[in-house]
Amino acid sequence: MNSKHEFTLLYDGHCPICRKEVAWLRSRNKQNKLGLQDIHAEGFNPAHYGKSLDELMAEIHGVCVDGRLIKGMPVFYAAYSAVGLGWLMAPTRWPLLRQLFDILYAWFARHRLGLGAWFGAKACQDAHCSIRSGHGKT
Rank of each mutant, 00 (worst) to 15 (best):
I39H: 00
H40S: 09
A41M: 11
E42Y: 09
G43A: 09
G43K: 05
G43W: 07
F44C: 08
N45V: 10
N45I: 12
P46E: 06
A47C: 10
H48R: 15
H48I: 14
Y49S: 02
Y49R: 06
G50F: 03
G50Q: 03
K51M: 05
K51Q: 05
S52E: 02
L53S: 00
D54V: 10
D54T: 13
D54G: 04
E55S: 09
L56M: 12
L56T: 01
M57F: 02
A58T: 09
A58Q: 09
A58F: 06
E59W: 11
E59T: 14
E59N: 15
I60C: 03
I60N: 01
I60H: 01
I60G: 00
H61L: 05
H61C: 04
V63T: 02
V63C: 04
V63D: 01
V65Q: 12
V65G: 07
D66M: 09
G67M: 13
G67Q: 08
R68T: 15
L69Q: 09
I70T: 06
K71L: 12
G72E: 07
M73W: 06
M73K: 11
M73G: 05
P74Q: 11
P74D: 09
V75N: 04
V75W: 02
V75I: 14
F76T: 03
F76S: 04
F76K: 02
Y77D: 07
A78S: 09
A78K: 02
A79I: 09
A79L: 08
A79K: 03
A79W: 03
Y80M: 14
Y80Q: 11
Y80R: 08
